[in-house]
Amino acid sequence: MNVCQALKFKGLIFLWLVNIKVLVVSLVLLYIPNDFELILKSFGNETLLFHSASGDTLLLGPTAIPLVTRLKDGPLEQEALFEYVADKLNFEVDEDFLNHMEEVLSGLMKRDIVAAQ
């Protein structure tokens, strides 16, 4: 295999991996485990979240609120969930938005508030 062929092969592998990632992300089903209680409370300014499994109370940011609220209604695929949040907040689904949402989601998953299957 010459250099040209090798580069082409690597390019194909890369594209294939990207497609797999897109496919996997779009198939990830996110949900809120129902073995604990999750309570949301706002006094008109920001939103507090009580997580009964840990006993922790968190202050939710503006993008986390619709994300959690939507998942409380039932599981949803990640892609659809992010689109839902963008729609709720009138945000454009661009790379910055998706990166931010992945961070938010990762934070919620680390705290066992949201799970994936």
Binding site: F43, E46, T47
Partner: peptide, 8 residues
């Protein structure tokens, strides 16, 4: 003070 941070 906003009530949410007073809560925390």
């Amino acid at each position: 003070r906003i009530k949410e941070t007073a809560f925390l």
